[in-house]
Design a protein around this nucleic acid. Structure first.
Length: 800
RNA sequence: GCGGGUGUGGCGGAAUGGCAGACGCGCCAGACUUAGGAUCUGGUGUCCAUACGUGCAGGUUCAAGUCCUGUCACCCGCACCA
């Protein structure tokens, strides 16, 4: 068959659109399936092959579900706020709105050309007023409940982008956008109190079906640790010095304390500290150090003793020195630690450098050699002496601390509150008014959306203020509470805001009364299956789970967890095996592949190239392999007869139904396609297949190469659209082969094969094996020790 | 350092403890061709072979790529988290 993919693909894309084939139905009696993919950021570069892989997985699943009779919601939209668009606007002077609209148009065309079965009637764009109105609404709810607040704190700041970044946006000490070194800066910033949900974000993971490594990464990011808070006292001033430790059992081994250079106690005790000059100098040095330098110097501990200051160990009563050192961070725990050099490697190396006492309190180590972090019997520890394990020692110590009122059990999380404002133009305005009398006042709900004003200049000011600050008629306003002159908040929300709830809006995209209708939410939520990249596991996913849990608590959504299942696709590497990047020049443009081979080839190749979850390099030769497969698939049309297929073909067809159906569920698309290729080879041997069996094959192919499948379906006289035809069901009885081949082993080594009836008895099988000439010769003169027969698989004869 | 993952042909990769290398790429040979970076057919782990082969060394088992112990290498997260 001559196959002109251009006209065929155009033809079916039009037919799908005319038939509204992929639009989800509200109020349907059918079972629902909500498949979600991470909506793209519409960059100027257009679509990447990575998008095709990311969407291609759930595309196949969604298409299969639809054919299985589900009411499928498989939506798409655009996460369009963000810095690249804004930076482009700053450079060119073109308004981000214009840039965004152009890019969305381009993405839409490209996505449609690939034939994805998205519900295009529900497209959302996070930068549109009727969308960000509800993003602002959620912010106000958070503010009302005290989960959005302002605080002055040391924050991650990117000097190049001139923005405050969250921890999630500055992993590894680099700006996520421009990769510059971030610095710590004290600023008055907006926070979302995500830490209030830390425990639930953790425990919720037990109720969802996420890939194990996705769960693990989230667990590590939340970073729960259990331990104790202990109050030490400063002898010279009586101040409490509170620490957090996971090892309260080692309290008797505390020989010094360390506080972070920025710890407020330093300033408080300034007059009593004998060497304040040196202390301040050290503090300055630390502030200048980049994250990178701090990490490199892990082994060489630095610090300064606070001269004239001592603390009292609350259990041993001993006086101990206090140091400041940058290996203690202000941002974790209380910014102060009790140091147990005998049993902590960091404290040990510090003690060695500074000549502090090292007192072992657990037996088993050698303090000359290093810290002993293992378990053992307690020594030098007063009432703990004799306890022989860590667990019991901790329990005993916690009881003592609580009884004496010097400490209590506690937990700590690595996760920090979410720094939420950006001094940027292209984002949702934060709907808050600053009034000199009333303080921070929310913009009334009825005034939402608070529109992003027009500006002349998109760049942030030199002082790091938002471009909105220069728009006088935006900034100047009346306080909604008292009517006095007031000023609007001029910062905008970070890019992660809009994507934290977008899956809710797809359910009811044009609702102007609520973020979505409660009945519709009840029907569609939770998302049944969410696929995306590993890079979003600790940011977008945690943020959106947080928002969702909050919305659940205030009764806006019907379920506690938004995503029932989460998977992730692996990267597509360049042909050179390296990560694709413009600078390496190894980027493959999916549009080129569609141009020269068609969308079906692109889709099929990307899902065939390797394990879906793993990274795999691009291969142009491999693309041609996919093309050959589809052409061979189409050429079978000439082998169709109206007589039944041979029993071997029939059996192979049903085995393929089973294989393809199961593999799609496991995202093993590569082996699903391989099974169809294998079946093709079998059919080519016989050059004959029944019309009905070929129609089964065409439906199996449909999720992968839907255009070709539709064309063949039509040629074969199938009813309606193949995309909406019933998914084939495997008839297990037809997959059972009457005759089966068994391997015959002698001492575990394969020496031959025998073909037997599937119901052959153990005796028959052994007799047949021994009747084989080669086997008989090998058995001659040997003593049979044991005979194993696994029906349908293997015969193993053990001889001496 | 901590946590997780992966090691299989020339390459991408398959294998509920049961015939390792499915399927594809590449390569070789042949056919059809004025031509072939098209198509079709056959072949293709290593070795002349007995045999040997899933990073390496052991172990369990009738049987191990798969399970167990140890070890090496690479990749990905987090990283002075107290």
């Amino acid at each position: 068959m001559k196959y002109d993919y251009r006209s065929v693909e155009d033809k079916w894309q039009k037919k799908w659109e005319e038939a509204h084939a992929f639009e989800a139905q509200d109020g349907s009696e059918k079972p629902k399936f909500y498949g979600l993919v991470e909506f793209p950021y519409p960059s100027g570069a257009g679509m990447h092959v990575g998008h095709i892989k990311a969407y291609g997985g759930l595309e196949v699943v969604s298409r299969k579900r639809r054919m299985q009779g589900y009411n499928v919601l498989f939506p798409i939209g655009f996460d369009a706020y963000g810095l690249p668009t804004e930076n482009y606007a700053i450079k060119t002077g073109i308004h981000p709105r214009v840039v965004t609209d152009n890019n969305i148009k381009k993405f839409t065309e490209q996505l449609k050309r690939v034939g994805f079965s998205f519900d295009w009637s529900r497209v959302i764009d996070t930068t549109e007023e009727d969308y960000y109105r509800w993003t602002q609404y959620i912010f106000l709810k958070l503010f009302e409940k005290g989960y959005a607040f302002r605080d002055t704190a040391l924050v991650n700041y990117c000097p190049k982008c001139k923005v405050v970044l969250s921890n999630e946006d500055s992993q590894g000490g680099h700006c996520d956008i421009c990769h510059s070194e971030i610095v710590q800066k004290s600023k008055d910033v907006w926070y979302l109190r995500i830490t209030a949900y830390a425990d639930r974000l953790l425990s919720g993971l037990e109720t969802v079906d996420y890939l194990p490594n996705v769960k693990l990464q989230q667990e590590n990011w939340i970073g729960k640790s259990t331990g104790a808070f202990v109050n030490f006292t400063v002898n010279e001033s009586g101040d409490a010095l509170r620490i957090y430790t996971t090892r309260p059992d080692t309290l008797f081994g505390v020989t010094f304390m360390v506080i972070a250079p920025e710890h407020p106690l330093v300033d408080k005790l300034a007059e009593k500290i004998g060497n304040m000059d040196a202390v301040l100098r050290y503090r300055e040095e630390c502030a200048k150090k980049t994250e990178f330098e701090r990490t490199l110097l892990v082994k060489d501990k630095t610090g300064v003793r606070l001269d004239g200051i001592t603390a009292k160990n609350p259990v041993s009563g001993k006086d101990i020195p206090i140091y400041i050192a940058d290996y203690v961070m202000m941002g974790y725990g209380t910014g102060a630690i009790m140091a147990v050099p005998a049993h902590d490697e960091r404290d040990y190396s510090f003690a060695k450098i500074f000549g502090v006492d090292i007192i072992p309190v657990i037996e088993g180590g050698d303090i000359e050699k290093g810290a002993y972090t293992g378990d053992g019997k307690m020594i030098n520890s007063g009432f703990l002496n004799g306890i022989d394990n860590k667990k019991d020692a901790i329990i005993a110590m916690l009881a003592h601390l609580e009884k004496e009122g010097i400490g209590e059990a506690g937990v700590q999380f690595k996760m920090k509150d979410w720094a939420f404002n950006r001094q940027r133009y292209w984002g949702e305005p934060i709907p808050i008014v600053h009034c000199s009398k009333c303080g921070m006042v929310p913009v009334p709900y009825k005034e939402l959306p608070l529109r992003l004003p027009e500006v002349e200049e998109f760049a942030p000011g030199e002082g790091g203020e938002s471009p909105l600050a220069k728009v006088e008629n935006f900034v100047k306003c009346k306080c909604p509470r008292c009517g006095a002159d007031a000023r609007r908040e001029t910062d905008t929300m970070p890019q992660w805001a809009g994507s934290s709830w977008y899956f809710l809006r797809y359910i009811d995209p044009s609702n102007d009364k609520a973020l979505a209708d409660p009945e519709k939410l009840k029907y569609w939520m939770p998302v049944d299956w969410y696929n995306g990249g590993m890079e979003h596991v600790t940011r977008h996913m945690i943020y959106s789970r947080f928002w969702h849990k909050f919305l659940y608590d205030i009764g806006e959504v019907p379920c506690d967890e938004p995503y029932a299942k989460r998977t992730a696709q692996g990267l597509i590497l360049g042909p050179d095996g390296e990560k694709m990047s413009k600078s390496k020049g190894n980027v493959v443009d999916p549009n080129d592949v569609v141009d020269s081979y068609g969308a079906d080839v692109l889709r099929t190749y990307i899902l065939f190239m390797g394990d879906y979850a793993s990274a795999a390099p691009w291969s142009d030769a491999g693309v041609r392999g996919a093309k050959r497969f589809l052409e061979r698939f189409a050429d079978i049309y000439d082998m169709v007869t109206d007589a039944p297929s041979s029993s071997s073909i029939e059996s192979a067809v049903h085995k393929t139904i089973r294989k393809v159906s199961d593999d799609i569920e496991d995202m093993k698309f590569n082996t699903a396609i391989a099974a169809m290729m294998g079946l093709l080879n079998t059919i080519y041997d016989e050059k004959r297949i029944s019309r009905e069996d070929y129609k089964i094959l065409v439906r199996l192919l449909c999720p992968f190469a839907p255009h070709l499948a539709e064309e063949l379906w039509e040629m074969l006289g199938g009813n309606g659209l193949c995309s909406l035809a019933a998914w084939p069901v495997c008839d297990e009885s037809k997959t059972v082969d009457q005759m089966v081949e068994l391997a015959v082993q002698i001492n575990g080594k394969v020496k031959g094969t025998v073909t037997l009836d599937k119901d052959a008895s153990r005796e028959d099988a052994l007799a047949a094996a021994k009747a084989d000439e080669k086997i008989a010769a090998l058995l001659d003169g040997r003593t049979i020790v044991k005979e194993i027969v696994v029906p349908g698989k293997i015969i193993n004869i053990v001889v001496k």
